[in-house]
Design a protein around this nucleic acid. Structure first.
Lengths: 136, 136
DNA sequence: AATTTACGCAAGTATTTGCTTTCAATTAAA
DNA sequence: TTTAATTGAAAGCAAATACTTGCGTAAATT
């Protein structure tokens, strides 16, 4: 396993999504955020750190406070990934005509390329000693 | 911690996303999927199980094989959540006119309600013994 | 019938996660 | 200046995660 710290990971946690929901409208400081949840301020701080590392939040130091500001552009990665499958589903149940219409907008040709540049499932790390399935 | 097994969690793992990428176009059996990755067949099986539990895949038993079939309707939950912030961002930088136009389509009024029905941050579980922040 | 294939299940392991408590640092307020 | 408030950082912990190996079962192949 390796430390995953991408946007998909960031929004996987319901608390972090709730934090995003909270900050989305206006900047909030740590204490105000923590008050909304049942966990300790430190736990929230850690979530904020993760969200910041994933570039979903910006911090603005204001005296002894820290204002967290939503910066949700990076959610685009998620949007794009999910959206392509909306297209696929849509085309599956619609006419060929609409399929052709949508094809250029959806990045459906990327579907299989993706695996290559993804950090995980690193095809070369240990040269797959016997595929672990072949009876030796 | 509690077992999280929702769509957001399901797609948080890059291997699982790659599996979805793979199955999206046509049904595939376990072995064929496992061949694409560097991890063992059993590891893939576990991912498939998780994806199935999250209702993103269907299984079709075919003799000794198991065909996994994409059933990505549940990605809608993710789509909707992410999309609302696209709207918010969009409106932040656009004119009031376009904001008014988009408002009815985006479920922006749900932004703060969400926290209520979310499984995590259970405001009532142990009645927050002193908020853990108040110096005792 | 014997073997191979496709697969799930279970046990075991290392790492990560999400959390807590304790502490120290800085800023503001009395 | 003393005290309170806002915060991060560090240490520690239980549970979850992602993975492995080993085994059993049922279906196809020989």
């Amino acid at each position: 396993m390796e430390l995953r710290r991408d946007v998909f990971h960031a929004i996987a946690d319901p608390t972090r999504r709730a934090i995003i929901d909270l900050i989305a409208c206006q900047p909030v400081n740590v204490k105000t955020i923590a008050k909304q949840f049942d966990v300790s301020r430190q736990a929230i701080s850690l979530h904020l750190k993760i969200l910041t590392e994933c570039n979903l939040l910006n911090v603005e130091e204001r005296g002894r406070e820290r204002l967290y500001i939503a910066k949700l552009e990076n959610l685009n990665e998620v949007y794009v990934w999910v959206k392509q499958y909306r297209k696929i589903r849509a085309t599956r149940f619609s006419s060929l005509k609409s399929m052709v219409e949508e094809v250029d907008e959806s990045q459906s040709e990327k579907v299989f390329k993706k695996s290559k540049k993804d950090k995980k499932h690193k095809k070369s790390k240990k040269k797959k000693n016997e595929k672990s399935d072949k009876r030796k």
